[in-house]
Amino acid sequence: MSLYDDAVLVLKSYEDQEELRQAYLDHLQSHPDGMWKSCHSGHVTASALVIDPERGRVLLTLHKKLRLWLQMGGHCEPDDATLADASLREGTEESGIPGLTLLSGGPVRLDRHHTPCAWHFDVQYAALAPAGAVEAISDESLDLRWFAYDEVADVADESVVRLLEATRARL
Rank of each mutant, 00 (worst) to 15 (best):
M35G: 10
M35C: 15
W36F: 13
W36H: 11
K37G: 12
K37W: 13
S38I: 11
S38E: 15
S38H: 12
C39H: 07
C39Q: 12
C39M: 05
C39S: 10
H40I: 09
H40N: 13
H40K: 14
S41G: 09
S41L: 10
S41T: 15
G42S: 07
H43Q: 06
H43F: 15
H43A: 07
V44H: 08
V44D: 02
T45P: 03
T45W: 05
A46C: 10
A46G: 07
A46T: 09
A46K: 04
A48E: 08
L49I: 04
L49D: 00
L49T: 04
L49N: 03
V50C: 02
V50E: 00
V50T: 03
V50R: 01
V50M: 00
I51N: 01
D52M: 00
D52C: 02
D52H: 03
P53G: 02
E54Q: 14
E54A: 13
E54L: 05
E54H: 10
E54D: 14
R55H: 14
R55F: 06
G56E: 02
G56W: 02
R57F: 01
V58H: 01
V58P: 00
L60Q: 03
L60R: 03
L60P: 03
L60C: 04
L60M: 04
T61R: 14
T61H: 11
L62I: 08
L62Q: 11
L62K: 13
H63L: 02
H63E: 03
K64P: 01
K65N: 10
K65H: 11
K65C: 02
K65P: 01
L66R: 11
L66Y: 08
L66G: 07
L66H: 12
R67W: 06
L68A: 14
W69Q: 04
W69Y: 15
L70A: 09
L70W: 07
Q71C: 13
Q71N: 14
Q71R: 13
Q71K: 12
Q71F: 12
M72Q: 14
M72A: 15
M72Y: 06
G73F: 08
G73I: 08
G73S: 12
G73N: 11
G74L: 10
G74Q: 09
H75M: 11
C76Y: 07
C76V: 12
C76A: 13
E77S: 10
E77T: 12
E77H: 12
E77L: 15
E77I: 10
E77K: 13
E77Y: 10
P78M: 09
P78K: 12
P78Q: 10
P78G: 10
P78F: 10
P78H: 10
